[in-house]
Each structure stands twice: as structure tokens, then as C-alpha cells.
Design a protein around this nucleic acid. Structure first.
Lengths: 254, 254
DNA sequence: CGGAGTCTTGACCTCTATCAAGTTTTGTGG
DNA sequence: CCACAAAACTTGATAGAGGTCAAGACTCCG
């Protein structure tokens, strides 16, 4: 559930602080900027207090003014249907941009909420657009991010339409590990910032099934679970699972 | 299967014809353009020979130069995984833009193929971008189309993750009918330009299940099938199915 | 320490994939 | 225009994956 906590309006205020760690390299905009461009961007990025679990960055109908970059922690993107059912469409780790599905519209179409204590950078879109008039490649980069979001969702469509529960969970774990590596972290102990319920929702499974699959993977010696920390003890086997079901999974030990 | 037919390179050639029926109102770009803008756009739109069923507009790896607008007929967008499995991610009816997932990249990441005899307009992207420097709202409209594509896929994610077969098919039919209405056509006899196999692939079902569901819906008196033509005899009942499964479907006759 | 929430495990049953025939439609060549 | 082959579609029987319901274990905080 996306709990609307009392007074849970995002705690992102207008503090204009320099936010260098949030701006360029590892974060949202790996674009070639000159020093002046960097300074300008840093000037428009806004940083706020950390969000606690469940707190909402934006919700459907909130006027679209900014996109957000995750600095630390994790967010989920959630769509809610008329009849109140929720579907988690993405998890966002540090370095990722959130709120792209609102670009071009007046209001956000989805919800973004913190999975754990999370710091985000707010990037006012109007100023980002102004900046992209002058900074070569910035607009292109933003559009590319949107295309990447489309591609990521297409991959999820394939996962949900063609893969069984085992393959979905294996693909999720491998993908999460890959994202860790991309960020320069170790591949194998990954942390699951979301609950079993949320993970199941994302993967189109009930929490019980997720739990049973964890058990099965552990019994195979493929992974180990210690609370939120997940060890991928046999990434090869898990990666094999993500491939087409026609291929038989033969024993594949380290 | 996306058959690469011998010599099936898209028959879209460089004929520069005026293509008014393709340009603005009912088609790709309902933007407020002045007469000069309309003329410019018409100038860059390219029309080609009709595509026959199975023929490919673009395929993964083809350099990205243009987006395409469907004029008549229908296309499918398909992603292919490393192991050769195909997933249809969208069907495109007349008036819709195709190829947006390539914007920002050098090559198309997916395949677009004709479901039936289909005419498309090729819109060279470089020239479209140049035009959008001058035409107010054009760029914004393109970006909005991308956001809409993201939103449409998010809805599909929900459909695949949370809905059963009955609900998926009902939602598809209702959605297709709604799209007909948007284009000014009658709501109730809709035509299915795709095979059962393709429809099942899109909905995460096998063709047999699609067939059985058609039978079930017909037995309920909710729809009628005559070849490709589908009559929605009780749209209310179908629409009711698309809602949350918690709500019991009581008999709902015309 | 205790209670609420989360997670795990088990028993059961439904939904849908799979396999296997038939039947209809489509396409092609005579 | 008809005949025949190939493909697409329909229908039935069956089995297995995963959802549902229920109970117990663990965790996190107050």
C-alpha cells in the first residue's frame, strides 16, 4: 500500500544548496558539461531532508514541476487503477531518475514512494529545460532516459508474459546484482530494500510464492538469505534460469 | 514469428509527395501549426508503397532515421530476447506513431511489422527535430507521445501482473473499441487484424486460451465473432470484467 | 516483554498451459 | 473457379504451476 501518511507531503524544500554529489558523474546526467554548465546545474538542483519508508515523493495529480534523482536509499514507482489496485512498475536505486513519465504533462500520472530511508535530489524541470537550450546533449540525454524507461518496461512485459515464477525471480536478482555492479558495488551481497509483498507485486506473484522460491533457490545452494541481505552464491545457475525455458537446467555448481 | 521475407526491406522510398491525409489532424501531430508549419511538415513526410502482412518497417539494429505514422492497416511492435523469444509489446492502429523507443539512440531496439496490408508515413526524425526548433509545441508533443507510450506500457504491466486471462482479453477488447471511438469509428464491430497467436502473445496467453475465452464470451452473449470481425454485444459486461476481480460479476444483460 | 506486522510453511484447488485431434480458413496451382 | 495442401483456429482431456486459505515463526519496536 502507498500509505498517505499524515502530513506526508514531500519534505523537499527550496533549500538551494550545492549538491555536487548528486549532479553529474555517477548520477542523473552523465553529459559532457563545461564548468559553467556544471555550476548552473548544481545551482538548480535542490536537496531535501531524507524520506522515511512509505513517504511519498509525488502522487497522481500532483502538478509536474520536477524530476527526481535518487541519491541514497530506494524508491518505488506505483500506478493505481480506478478500483484501487496497485502495481509497482519499477524500483529505483541511487543514480536513477524518477518522474520521467510526467514529462510533457501537467501532472504526475503515478506515485513514487520511499522503500526505506532515502535521499533524493529534486531537479526543477523548467530550469532543466532552460539549461538544455544551452548545454549540448542534455536534452538528448533526457530523451534517451525516457527511451530507456520504455525499453525497461518492454523487458518487464516480456518477463511477465512469457516467464514463470522461478525465471522472474532469478531475472530480478541477476538484474539487481548487475545494477549494483554498474554502480561500482560488489555483485554478490545485494540488499532487497523492498518487502516480499512489494517484490511479489512487482513480479506478478503473491508473497508466498516469492518465499517458496527463495527456499527453493537456497536448497539448490544458489543463494542465501539473511534478512534483507541476499547472497548470490551461484550467479551462473540463476542466470541460466533467466534464459528460455526450453533449455534444460542441468546442475551447475560453483 | 517476425518473418524476414526475402527482399523484405521496407518499401518506403524517397518519393516526396504531399501527404496531407497523414500529417496533422487525425494523425500523428495534433499540434497547432500555422499554414507554413503544415506545409513544412507535409514536405518532410514520406509515403511509400503499402506493406503486406509480415513485412517489416524496421528491425533491431537498423539505424534510426525516422519515426512512422500508421495511415491504414495495423502494425505490431515486437521485442526479441537473446534466446529468440518474441514478445509483442504493442499494436498500432491508424493515427499512431511508431518507433518512439528509438529516439535518442542510434538504432531501433525493436521490430515493427505489418499485421495486414498497411500504409505508413515515414517521418525523418532529423527534419522533425529541425522543425520543432521553430514550431511551438511540436517538441513538447513528441515528448508527450513518449510519456504516453510509457503510461500505456505501465497499464500493460498491471494487466499482465494482476489480471487473469478473462480480464486481460476483456480489457483488450474494450480498449480496442475505445480506440475505434477515438478515431471516430463505431464502437461495436471492431476488427482484429492480428492472429490468435499474436493476440495471445501480447496478452501473455496461448492461442488455445484466447479461443476458449472467445467461446465463453459468446456463450454469455457478450460478443460475437465472424472471422476477424468482433461484435461487442454487451460492452457493459465486458467492461465490468476489466475491473477488480474482487467485484463479483453479476448477470448484466442488455 | 508483548503485540503488530512480516515472513514462512503447508494443504488444497483453480486456472491455464500442454498435448492431441478435429475443423475451418487461406492460399495456390491447375 | 475449383481442389487440395498448409496454416490457423477450435475443442477436449489432462497435469502442473501458482494462487488461496490457514496456521505458525520470526522481527521489529514500543
Amino acid at each position: 500500500m502507498v500509505e498517505r501518511q499524515p502530513g506526508a507531503e514531500p519534505r523537499i524544500h527550496n533549500l538551494r544548496e550545492s549538491c555536487t554529489s548528486c549532479s553529474l558523474n555517477d548520477l542523473c546526467l552523465p553529459v559532457a558539461l563545461d564548468a559553467a554548465g556544471i555550476e548552473t546545474l548544481d545551482g538548480i538542483v535542490q536537496r531535501g531532508h531524507p524520506l522515511v519508508r512509505g513517504q511519498i515523493v509525488y502522487h497522481p495529480g500532483k502538478p509536474f514541476h520536477s524530476v527526481y534523482a535518487v541519491r541514497a536509499g530506494a524508491l518505488k514507482s506505483v500506478t493505481v487503477t480506478e478500483d484501487g489496485e496497485e502495481q509497482i512498475t519499477a524500483f529505483h536505486l541511487p543514480g536513477e531518475l524518477v518522474g520521467l513519465d510526467a514529462i510533457g504533462f501537467d501532472a504526475h500520472p503515478s506515485t513514487a514512494a520511499a522503500l526505506e530511508t532515502t535521499r533524493v535530489c529534486e531537479i526543477p524541470f523548467a530550469e532543466l529545460e532552460g539549461l538544455s537550450e544551452h548545454v549540448h546533449g542534455l536534452r538528448r540525454h533526457l530523451v534517451r532516459r525516457m527511451s530507456q524507461a520504455i525499453a525497461a518496461e518492454q523487458e518487464m512485459l516480456h518477463l511477465l508474459a512469457r516467464r514463470n515464477a522461478e525465471q522472474r525471480l532469478a531475472a530480478f536478482l541477476v538484474h539487481l546484482s548487475d545494477r549494483h555492479v554498474q554502480r561500482g558495488l560488489a555483485a554478490t551481497p545485494v540488499r532487497l530494500p523492498m518487502s516480499r509483498h512489494e517484490l511479489g507485486n512487482y513480479l506478478g506473484l503473491v508473497p508466498e510464492t516469492v518465499s517458496r522460491l527463495f527456499r527453493r533457490f537456497m536448497d539448490h545452494g544458489w543463494m542465501s538469505v539473511q534478512g534483507q541481505s541476499i547472497g548470490l552464491d551461484n550467479p551462473g545457475a540463476l542466470r541460466l534460469l533467466t534464459r528460455s525455458s526450453s533449455q534444460v537446467v542441468q546442475e551447475h555448481r560453483t
